Simulated scan of single mutants.
Amino acid sequence: MKDIYKGLLLTAIISVISIMLNASFLNFIETMTIGILLGIIVANVFRIPESFDKGISFALKKILKWGIVLLGVKLNFSLLLELGPKILLLVVSLITIAITASYFVGRAHKLNPCLSVLLGVGSSICGASAIVAIAPVIGAEDEDVAISVTVISLLGAIGVIVYSFLAQKLPLTDLQYGIWSGSSLQGVAHAIAAAGARGTDNISLEIGTLVKMSRVALLAPVALVLRSLFSKSQERKTKFPAYVIYFILVGILFSVNDYFNFFPTACRLGDMTVDITVLLKKVSNIFILMSMVAMGLKVNFKSFESRASKALVICSFVFVLISLTSLAGIRLSGC
């Protein structure tokens, strides 16, 4: 334990700084993106002693897995049943189109397959959270994750601004606008922020959140499919990662509990009421943030910079494709 505390402490300090910066004047940038960028700056400006390496690697490998398992708390498979077949088909189609397009366009531009798929996954499921969950499943490199998280977060922020502007301009009903926002924007926060552009009491916010969370619920089956595909393409058989199985089980557990209420998710501590679900979500966010900082600390800036620009172009194309396809699907389905 003594040989990991230095690296862990460094990732924790940078994580806290990232949270503070996001809360103060960088709230338009995701905390994970800030953490990655700070990690890259620290690693490339200062020479980090070798004694920090084990702690940084521990945060990147072990703490990331814990964060992914707890990420399952956010899943709610019962939401899929609440959506009509038209919307569910639209969501599944968009995820398939995004990942496929990202893979082949990336391949045409000589981007490695893992990075290309991560860009598609982040664009179509739930942004940075999906990227960090899928990356180990397909054997992606740390730099692939850092690049894709940064690019997805940037485009998500731009998307919120554009969608909020178009909210009052496009001839869409509140229901249609909510479906559009929920089915095409990258992260959960991005989709909800855009869906609420017509007012927090508007049905667009409710339906946008519902559609977005249905995409999150599809993270588990997408992970299973991609693991199978990448195992075949690499001509080797690998066991499905245990932490992803735990992630799925946690999602099923909390989904079933939401319906049957087998166990309480809130408890009293003195005069306070603690929501266990909310607490676990926050712990998951902190763990994943620490692992993203650790990832940044292992990035070589020159390599990152050259690949990030190409990834940004490809991901922008995928974002526009998803957005337009979603609009067309909403129109054709008569939602």
Rank of each mutant, 00 (worst) to 15 (best):
I17N: 07
L332R: 05
S51P: 03
I203K: 14
V145F: 10
I286L: 11
L229R: 07
S309L: 15
N112T: 00
T325D: 11
G122Q: 01
E141I: 01
S15T: 10
G251M: 05
A12E: 03
A311F: 02
V225P: 12
V283E: 07
G7V: 09
A197F: 01
S306W: 09
S148T: 12
F52N: 03
F304E: 11
V45P: 06
A217D: 08
S233G: 02
E82F: 09
H109R: 12
L115Q: 13
L332I: 13
G208A: 05
M292T: 09
K110F: 11
K237V: 14
L155C: 09
P85H: 12
V73F: 02
A133P: 11
G39S: 12
N261D: 09
G270F: 04
I179V: 13
V274L: 15
K310M: 08
K298C: 06
A98N: 03
R268V: 15
I63N: 04
I203N: 01
K65D: 02
T11M: 08
K74V: 02
V188G: 02
I40F: 08
R236Q: 13
L88T: 01
L166R: 01
I245F: 09
G196Y: 13
E50P: 01
F28G: 03
V293D: 13
S148P: 06
S306Y: 13
G334Y: 11
K239A: 15
I56R: 07
C267D: 11
I314G: 07
F262R: 01
V320S: 00
L26D: 05
M213Y: 11
L118Y: 04
K6Y: 14
A193L: 13
P264Q: 03
A140K: 01
G72W: 03
Q176N: 09
V117M: 08
G182H: 10
I252M: 06
G208E: 01
E305S: 15
F52S: 02
I138D: 07
G55C: 04
D271C: 09
S309N: 14
W180T: 02
L332V: 09
P49A: 02
G196K: 13
N27D: 06
K237M: 08
V92N: 15
N44P: 03
G106V: 03
V91E: 14
I152D: 07
D271K: 10
N261T: 12
A101S: 15
R227E: 07
A167V: 01
S204T: 02
A308W: 08
N202V: 06
L289I: 05
T200L: 07
I13H: 06
P264L: 05
I161G: 01
I322Y: 00
I95Q: 13
I330C: 02
G39V: 06
V293A: 05
S333G: 10
G72Q: 00
S303Y: 12
S326G: 12
S93A: 11
E235H: 14
A308Y: 04
